[in-house]
Design a protein around this nucleic acid. Structure first.
Length: 277
RNA sequence: GCGCCGGUCGGAUAGCGGCUAUUCCAGGUGACUGUAAAUCACCCGCCUUCGGGCAUCGUUGGUUCGAGUCCAACCCGGCGCA
């Protein structure tokens, strides 16, 4: 019996708050283990959002192949489920070439979609329906959901319109919202979390944002607008479209970092490291 | 010095005498099943056994059954006139 038989394929995950040095570490590890990087970032997935998302440049990649960057059009929404599919096939494809997948990113939900194998109900977004329901009050949405699927209505966030609308969307096509299902992938996920103490993070974010402005963040936003990305969309993507100031961007980035921490805190499998940079 | 206006939580703001002082921002804790830098909940004067208890609207008095709200004086800030 060969040793190979007992080996479970490893998939390395590098996660953590923004600006903690994930991308650089991913490159280092990739060099060591003959790996390729899969980005798990809900904004870097889009074409044209480079400066504002802190996307790694070709040069910084140092020859390491990167997947799931620039695969979506910023004009349209990209969903977790789509990401999950692409990521799963990217993992398989990298492994089939005898290399090690390294998932690197800060979008906790995207990472969990892979590592926990969340099975999303096969109901794609119904944008006309969403648009229509967007005007309804949370109370009205709740009543609607109670009629469609009393079970789901019992444990849903009663004031969270996005979730209510999604639940209604599912219930309308499937009859009801299916119970949470999980289909784990046959890999061993090694979760490495990068952490910076608050003061250092603040400093790092400040430096990074200033660099963004220097590198032409405003020009990038203008370009996106010109290519047909609406103000509304830009806002969804986390960009100020009118008067973004460094102070504002820094503040928002730090707020985001806090939300990231809240997400990652729940995952006890993460091994945390402070990077000295 | 005179006149006018104002002083309410870290900041901003609401509060025609009546239960528990409003809302927004900032801050904190948390939730998360196809929007996730999204969305949502709770806390945000002090104490608490988490049920509540005690404070508090510049200060000090007063009117009143009852005052952030009315009155007086004072303190502070802004504007105007000297």
């Amino acid at each position: 019996m060969s040793k190979r038989h007992f080996d479970i394929q490893k998939v390395i995950i590098i996660l953590g708050q923004t600006a903690t040095g994930k991308s650089a570490l991913a490159i280092k590890i990739a060099k060591k283990v003959n790996g390729e990087v899969i980005s798990a970032d809900s904004r870097q997935i889009y074409k044209g959002l480079d400066i504002g998302t802190g996307k790694i440049s070709k040069r910084e990649m140092k020859g390491i192949p990167h997947h799931l960057l620039d695969v979506a059009n910023p004009k349209h929404k990209f969903s977790v489920a789509e990401f999950q599919q692409l990521a799963i096939s990217a993992i398989a494809e990298i492994i089939s070439r005898g290399k090690t997948p390294i998932i690197c990113g800060g979008t906790g939900f995207y990472i969990d979609a892979i590592t926990k194998g969340i099975v999303f109900p096969e109901v794609p977004p119904n944008y006309p329906l969403r648009k229509k329901l967007a005007f309804a009050s949370d109370r009205a949405l709740m009543l609607k959901l109670q009629k469609l699927d009393p079970e789901r209505a019992k444990n849903i966030d009663p004031k969270n319109k996005h979730r209510l609308i999604r639940a209604i969307e599912i219930a309308k096509t499937l009859g009801k919202v299916p119970k949470i299902k999980v289909k784990t992938l046959p890999y061993k996920f090694m979760k490495i979390g990068l952490y910076l103490p608050p003061e250092k993070l603040k400093k790092k974010v400040g430096q990074r944002v200033k660099k963004m402005f220097k590198n032409g963040l405003l020009k990038e936003i203008k370009k996106l607008k010109k290519s047909g990305v609406s103000d509304q969309r830009l806002k969804e993507l986390g960009f100020e479209y009118d008067y973004p100031t460094p102070e504002k961007v820094i503040k928002e980035t730090l707020q985001y970092a806090k939300r990231q921490t809240a997400w990652f805190k729940r995952d006890k499998e993460i091994k945390w490291f402070e990077l000295y940079i």
